[in-house]
Design a protein around this nucleic acid. Structure first.
Length: 416
RNA sequence: GUGCCCAUAGCUCAACUGGUUAGAGCACUGGUCUGUGGAACCAGGGGUUGUGGGUUCAAGUCCCAUUGGGCACCCCA
């Protein structure tokens, strides 16, 4: 019987796992540099947690829902923010503020997999809660910029597109577009880039906008200047102070689908747009904690997944080479030297060196080949003649040089 | 959830319009080389052609279903 993996799930063989760890390490390191702490939560929640505020389609069509044995409606987390909000609301008073948290949960969404989209993925989330000023946005985006740079992406290789939903609402008001039509109009704005111009017009006509309103809206969306809109103006001043203004640009067509965003929204994109989706998405969600029964608490967050970031790196030829690496491989001439080899390996490990011991009683020839494939920097060859002098051969596998070393000096010889 | 494309050894691919025991390169194992690795040469193992049905004298090749992968839509990380 041959069983294939479940659609859209991920197998991480060691080669791939090294990459995942590399990615997670970068996220953790940078987040901690800014004083953010890692947290985690359960990967199942009551469905109601999402029903409240996530997007309708996300909950109704893309969430894995099941009934527990007790008959409760449960959901496998399709995003992390509601869990974060629930946890914060539950201990709101005792938590030190502002709250700087990050997490890398495993997320599930029931969608048709395609490039940059699986059903199972890891999603780095960073959130800053308790800061009303737009300085929060600047700090969170600054972390994001540093992570991208830690991953090897420089200026011009990614761009953070920023907007503010209130700016859009303002725009609708100026164009005298009925506020009741906001959701429908936002939806079209959100995908204006993907729609053909005619489709954009027709869709808005269907919503009930006049030809003049559509033309005015269309040209306003091309305007890459937010004028004197206060929130955006001071946000750009902060970007300047944080030294990240080279990485951001204003884009009035950024809306975001999730319902809980208020004010600032942002997305990270591949500037070549070869990958025609946002790599990251986030924004301000000032009302989510209250809607889950907490006291008012402003919040800003952003998230990206291992799948999209991999696509981004691959697209730009930036996937790192991460070969297997250990410090030493212990080989031995014959079974007679094995006991000594075991002891040497144990000693090396005690001194913190990653040491693989040859475990098959095969020829030296094979052992050296294995040593080479193990990714070891050094091969330790335990052989009778040298052993009589209290020495072993130490072979630098990269430089192909070999010397005989006293057992007592072995640890020192491998440090360089 | 809708439409379309794809599926042959661990990997990348072959196999004329359906026609004899499904091939190659790389990788792997062994040998040339029983105290020393990445080269070369030689040899070898490994596929009931994703799975299950059907058509046919005959199917990797045609049909149906199913599973997985990909692209667009949808949505979104």
């Amino acid at each position: 019987m041959k069983i294939q993996p479940v659609q859209g799930t991920r197998d991480f063989y060691p080669d791939k796992m090294r990459w995942r760890n590399w990615l997670f390490d970068a996220c953790r390191q940078v987040s901690q540099l800014y004083g953010y702490e890692e947290f985690d939560g359960p990967f199942v929640e009551y469905l109601d947690l999402y029903a409240a505020k996530s997007g309708e389609e996300l909950v109704n069509e893309q969430t894995y829902i099941f009934e527990s044995r007790g008959g409760e409606k449960l959901a496998i987390r399709p995003e992390m923010t509601p869990t974060l909000a629930r946890m914060v609301a539950a201990r709101q008073n005792e938590l030190r503020k502002p709250i700087r948290w990050f997490t890398i949960p495993n997320i599930w969404r029931y969608e048709r997999p395609q490039r940059g989209r699986k059903r199972e993925f890891y999603q780095y989330n960073i959130d800053l809660l308790g800061v009303e000023s737009i300085e929060a946005e600047a700090e969170v985006l600054s972390v994001v910029v540093d992570i991208m740079r830690a991953l090897g992406l420089e200026k011009g290789e990614f761009v953070i597109r920023v907007n503010n939903r209130y700016y859009l609402e303002d725009l609708l008001r100026k164009l005298e577009i009925d506020i009741d039509k906001k959701d429908a109009v936002f939806r079209e704005i959100d995908r204006v880039e993907k729609l053909k111009p005619e489709a954009f017009r027709t869709n808005l006509e269907t919503v009930g906008l006049s030809a003049d309103q559509i033309t005015a809206l269309d040209s306003a969306l091309r305007q890459k200047n937010f004028g004197d809109f206060p929130a955006l103006k001071s946000l750009w001043e902060k970007f300047e102070q944080y030294g990240i203004s080279d990485y951001v640009e204003f884009d009035p067509s950024i809306v975001r689908g999730l319902l809980y965003y208020t004010g600032t929204v942002f997305e990270v994109w591949d500037p070549t747009k070869k990958f025609n989706r946002a790599i990251m998405g986030g924004g301000r969600y000032d009302n989510l904690i209250t809607s889950l029964g907490g006291q008012p608490l402003p919040a800003v967050g952003i998230a990206f997944s291992d799948v999209t970031i991999e696509e981004m790196l691959a697209q730009q030829g930036k996937m790192p080479e991460l070969p297997r690496e250990i410090d030493a491989y212990v080989a031995y001439y014959s079974a007679g030297e094995k006991a000594t080899a075991i002891k040497i390996a144990a000693d090396l490990r005690k001194s913190g060196l990653r040491t693989e011991l040859n475990i098959l009683d095969n020829s030296l020839d094979k052992q050296l080949k294995a040593a080479n494939n193990s990714g070891a920097r050094y091969a330790i060859i335990v052989a009778p003649d040298e052993l009589q002098r209290g020495e072993v051969n130490v072979k630098n596998l990269r430089q192909r040089e070999q010397k005989s070393v006293k057992l007592a000096d072995l640890g020192e010889a491998l440090k360089g």
